[in-house]
Simulated assay, not measured.
Amino acid sequence: MTARRQEGNGLRLGIVVIALLGCGLACSGVDFAARAATSERVVIDRYTGLAISGFDPVAFFTDARAVQGDPAFEVWQGGAIWRFSNPDNRAFFVANPDVYSPRFGGYDPVDIARGVTFAGTARLWLIVGQRLYLFGHEDSRAAFAADPVRYLHDATRRWVVLKETLAQ
């Protein structure tokens, strides 16, 4: 085999390795949009500016479910656009944003307790101690539900440092 053909084989092998790595990442279920949103103090969709993907944060308390917000009922608060399903929920939020917005900015509290930021999703949530928590994984929500005191202790301690590394 000539040296030129050997170099060509090495290049093809490199392309195959890169393609396999890319395919592995694509198939792993990693949500790159969520990771890209982990530089803000509140989880924000980087394309729309919506907090918690446009879900109504008050509805978790009033309806006990995730309800998509309506663009007619929006408010700009904390560097994000928050949407609500009705004007009453909007008014409740404006009066008490700290009560209704997800704790830890919508980041997964189990990951915060481990010292990392991972964006939670409105589809995986719990209310504990009159506060809303969003989770990035079903396993995280289950672990948190089993021992919220432990995770809240660790997450609260680590959040003080972590939030300083995030943009305002």
Results as ranks from 00 to 15, higher is better:
Thr2Pro: 15
Arg4Lys: 12
Arg5Asp: 08
Arg5Gly: 11
Gly8Ala: 10
Gly10Arg: 15
Arg12Ser: 13
Arg12Tyr: 06
Leu13Tyr: 07
Leu13Cys: 13
Gly14Gln: 12
Leu21Val: 14
Gly22Ser: 07
Gly24Ala: 03
Gly24Phe: 00
Leu25Ser: 04
Leu25Asn: 08
Ala26Tyr: 11
Val30Gln: 04
Val30Leu: 09
Asp31Met: 06
Ala34Trp: 02
Ala36Lys: 11
Ala36Met: 15
Glu40Asp: 13
Arg41Val: 05
Arg41Glu: 03
Val43Gly: 05
Val43Glu: 00
Val43Ile: 06
Ile44Leu: 04
Arg46Asp: 10
Thr48Pro: 13
Gly49Asp: 05
Leu50Asp: 06
Leu50Met: 07
Ala51Leu: 03
Ala51Arg: 03
Ala51Asn: 05
Ser53Ala: 15
Ser53Trp: 06
Gly54Gln: 02
Phe55Leu: 10
Asp56Met: 02
Ala59Thr: 11
Phe60Ala: 05
Phe60Glu: 05
Phe60Ile: 08
Asp63His: 08
Asp63Asn: 13
Ala64Asp: 12
Ala64Phe: 09
Ala64Tyr: 09
Ala66Pro: 15
Ala66Val: 11
Gln68Arg: 13
Gln68Pro: 15
Gly69Tyr: 00
Asp70Pro: 14
Asp70Cys: 12
Ala72Asn: 15
Trp76Val: 15
Trp76His: 14
Gln77Glu: 08
Gly78Pro: 10
Gly79Arg: 03
Gly79Gln: 01
Ala80Leu: 04
Ala80Glu: 03
Ala80His: 02
Ile81Cys: 10
Ile81Val: 15
Arg83Gly: 14
Arg83Val: 11
Phe84Ala: 09
Ser85Met: 08
Asn86Cys: 11
Pro87Asp: 07
Pro87Leu: 05
Asp88Ala: 13
Asn89Arg: 03
Phe93Trp: 01
Phe93Ile: 09
Ala95Arg: 07
Pro97Asn: 01
Pro97His: 00
Val99Ser: 10
Tyr100Gln: 01
Ser101Gln: 11
Ser101Gly: 15
Ser101Lys: 07
Pro102Gly: 00
Phe104Cys: 07
Tyr107Glu: 04
Asp108Asn: 01
Pro109Thr: 00
Pro109Arg: 01
Asp111Leu: 12
Ala113Val: 04
Val116Leu: 01
Thr117Pro: 14
Thr117Met: 04
Thr117Ala: 13
Phe118Thr: 15
Thr121Asn: 05
Ala122Tyr: 04
Arg123His: 10
Arg123Met: 06
Leu124Phe: 03
Trp125Cys: 10
Val128Lys: 03
Gly129Cys: 06
Arg131Val: 08
Arg131Asp: 00
Leu132Tyr: 01
Leu134Ala: 07
Leu134Val: 02
Phe135Val: 11
Gly136Ile: 02
Gly136Lys: 01
Glu138Asp: 04
Glu138Gly: 11
Asp139Ile: 10
Asp139Thr: 12
Ser140Glu: 02
Arg141Val: 08
Arg141Ala: 07
Arg141Pro: 06
Ala143His: 03
Phe144Glu: 02
Pro148Lys: 02
Arg150Cys: 04
Arg150Ala: 09
Arg150Pro: 12
Tyr151Asn: 09
His153Met: 12
His153Trp: 05
Asp154Thr: 09
Ala155Ser: 06
Thr156His: 03
Arg157Phe: 10
Leu162Phe: 01
Lys163Leu: 03
Glu164Pro: 08
Glu164Ile: 10
Thr165Trp: 00
Thr165Asn: 03
Ala167Thr: 13
